[in-house]
Design a protein around this nucleic acid. Structure first.
Length: 592
RNA sequence: GUGCCCGUAGCUCAGCUGGAUAGAGCGUCGCCCUCCGGAGGCGAAGGUCGGGGGUUCGAAUCCCUCCGGGCACGCCA
């Protein structure tokens, strides 16, 4: 139950009644009227901007409108006081029992507390990772993977019907290139050429992938097929089988790494399968039928030295009709489809599968690609489909403030697997969600494992562990007492009276609206900050007990107050666990 | 040159989609604790929200413009 949503409904009803009576003009738009926690706790419990929003359409100053509302608002359930403040805020004070009721909700609902229905079961497709099957995933992929996965979980919690999807780019020139590199390594494994030869080929740019990670693949190929590919020199004969081999090999590794990260996609879509099934041709025919393609010549790119540029007629998509800067090529000069053409087909495929709302998680280096895909989607759906692309900025990997060197060209880079093995998937996942996706992120091996308030993972997990520790003590102290969630829900919560205790209850009560707003904004990182704040309030309460023994959660001489406080402790743990579940992080029982 | 993202305390960052006196951690300064309810606590100083215009009851938030940083820029993916 979302208390703020409830009061928003109440406030709307009050305004509605006044409109019906003619005290306010009819037909007022209430969508921007909000019921929120006030910035300052001293201002009350729930604050509404209704008077300020309505002032203009009503034609009276905010405070005059507020006067009209106040008497009615006073009569709302559990409202103990109403005041007008500042430019026209109306602040409601409500009975503390309402906060206590929220606590009871948590105990009854468990980690489902905060589940919302703003999604109304609408299908939504979240595509993330989609790393090329040409090598292992690195830190950048890890960030996108975690952001996408947490966002998908968050949307599911908010009531959307979420599909987690991965697009395998197994059809373009890059997979051919990695097949070429694989062949070199294969010949090396067979002893037909040396490591120096491979290096030379790399320097002469005959191959583009030089990483050592290709060696196990080459060995596996040799183990399966012996030397049969050494004698085959016709590209058309050896590239496809080697390409298929390495794609399968890499996808197996990708899936294993994702599993180690706790990530499981519902759907894997293959670019190659899409192409073979003729869906690219279909999609382009569809656009052609709408008169949105033509053959033309693009201007050379501005600001870049167009040394190898030559004007060349190409099949283009009229992206400019849908907000893009230039029309975009669909066919390469060799006659094959561009990546974009296949991507159009892919997005059409998503729409055909019933998704109107699409979310893609990409690296920031793909930012220049967003407009054309959005344009294509508009063209494909007559403007009905919506696409939100979340661009993830760079991750800087540090150790104690010192940058950890990375070079993809030399083949040595920090892989996602490295991160997991170094600090564990839970730490990786949480840290990746402590920044907005469009802000750069520092990942410092030393700091993320530090045991201090500076480290949000530790601080949040510590709060959870402390709560569990209290329960271990309570089981000893109150043998026979019902410490299960249901039992605690029956505790006399009126014994929770300390202002900091009520403060924690308020924080708990605002979890559902945090979930809703984060989901609608596609910003899972907000939950990290919420959890940090809740943990902070909980630790503060704990510290207070250090100084004042009568505020400690467990009072051996007073089981009733202890049970009430245990209910609070448990609720904090459940809400943290609820947030961590969205993040795919396991709450810990104790710190080790 | 064009497009997208970013610019908030000395540092790292929040800021709930336009609300009240702009917050937190670190650092600095002052006081307290040395306790396994442990991996510190309390308090203070510190801001022209990059600059300048505009929109309105009200702007860090929306619009314009300039400055600074990142990313991208026909047939790669």
């Amino acid at each position: 139950m979302n208390i703020f949503a409830t009061y928003k409904t109440h406030i709307d009803a009050v305004v509605g009644a006044l409109m019906a009576e003619g005290a306010l003009p009819a037909g007022l738009d209430l969508t921007r009227v909000a019921a929120e926690p006030p910035r300052e706790a001293g201002h009350g419990d729930i604050s509404t901007n209704a008077a300020m929003i309505l002032a203009k359409p009503v034609g009276k100053p905010p405070r005059a409108v507020a006067e009209l509302l106040v008497e009615r608002l006073k009569k709302l359930p559990d409202v103990t006081d109403v005041s007008i403040a500042g430019p026209g805020f109306i602040n409601l004070k409500i009975n503390d029992d309402l906060w206590r009721g929220a606590l009871r909700d948590v105990l009854v609902e468990g980690i489902r507390y905060g589940n919302a229905d703003v999604g109304k079961g609408e299908p939504i497709n979240v595509e993330y990772v989609s790393a090329n099957p040409t090598g292992p995933m690195h830190v950048g992929h890890a960030r996108g993977a975690v952001v996408g996965d947490a966002l998908a979980n968050l949307l599911a919690k908010a009531g959307f019907k979420v599909t987690k999807e991965y697009y395998i780019n197994d059809a373009g020139g890059q997979v051919d290139n990695v097949a070429r590199a694989l062949r070199m390594r294969y010949l090396q494994v067979l002893g037909k050429i040396t490591a120096e030869d491979v290096k030379g080929a790399l320097e002469r740019k005959e191959i583009q992938y030089g990483g050592e990670y290709l060696m196990p693949v080459a060995e596996a190929l040799a183990a399966r097929d012996g030397d049969k590919w050494a004698a085959v020199t016709d590209d058309a004969l050896w590239i496809p089988p080697l390409r298929d081999f390495i794609v399968a090999f890499m996808m197996k590794i990708v899936k294993e790494d994702l599993a180690a990260m706790g990530i499981h996609h519902d759907v894997f879509s293959s670019e190659k399968a899409l192409t073979v099934a003729g869906k690219v041709d279909d999609a382009l025919a569809f656009l052609e039928g709408k008169g949105l393609t033509y053959t033309g010549v693009l201007e050379p790119p501005k600001g870049k030295t167009p040394d190898d540029y030559e004007p060349r007629p190409q099949l283009l998509f009229k992206a400019t009709q849908f907000g893009d800067e230039i029309d975009r090529p669909l066919k390469k000069s060799n006659g094959s489809w561009t990546y974009f053409a296949a991507d159009i087909a892919y997005h059409k495929d998503k729409v055909d599968r019933g998704f109107n709302t699409l979310i893609n998680i990409w690296g920031a280096d793909h930012g220049g690609y967003v407009k054309r895909v959005a344009a294509a989607l508009k063209a494909l759906t007559d403007g009905k489909g919506s696409l939100d692309v979340l661009l993830c900025q760079m991750v800087r990997v540090l150790n104690n403030g010192e940058p950890v060197k990375m070079s993809k060209r030399s083949g040595t880079f920090i892989t996602m697997r490295d991160l997991i093995e170094e600090v564990g998937k839970d730490v990786v996942r949480f840290i990746m969600l402590t920044r907005k996706n469009d802000a750069p992120l520092d990942f410092d091996f030393a700091k993320v494992t530090e045991k201090s308030r500076e480290n949000p993972v530790f601080y949040v997990q510590y709060a959870h562990a402390r709560g569990r520790s209290v329960f271990r003590h309570a089981a000893e102290m109150f043998k026979g007492a019902d410490l299960m969630d249901k039992g605690l829900a029956a505790a006399d919560l009126s014994r929770l009276t300390d202002s900091d205790e009520i403060g924690v209850l308020r924080a708990i009560a605002s979890w559902p609206r945090t979930v809703e707003s984060a989901a609608l904004a596609h910003e899972p990182h907000r939950l990290a900050f919420y959890m940090y704040d809740l943990a902070s309030a909980f630790h503060a309460l704990w510290n207070k007990g250090n100084d004042a023994a009568e505020l400690r959660f467990l009072q051996p001489e007073d089981q009733a107050v202890s049970l009430a406080r245990l209910a609070l402790v448990r609720a904090v743990g459940l809400v943290i666990a609820s947030g961590l579940a969205v993040f795919g992080v396991e709450p810990v029982e104790e710190m080790r």
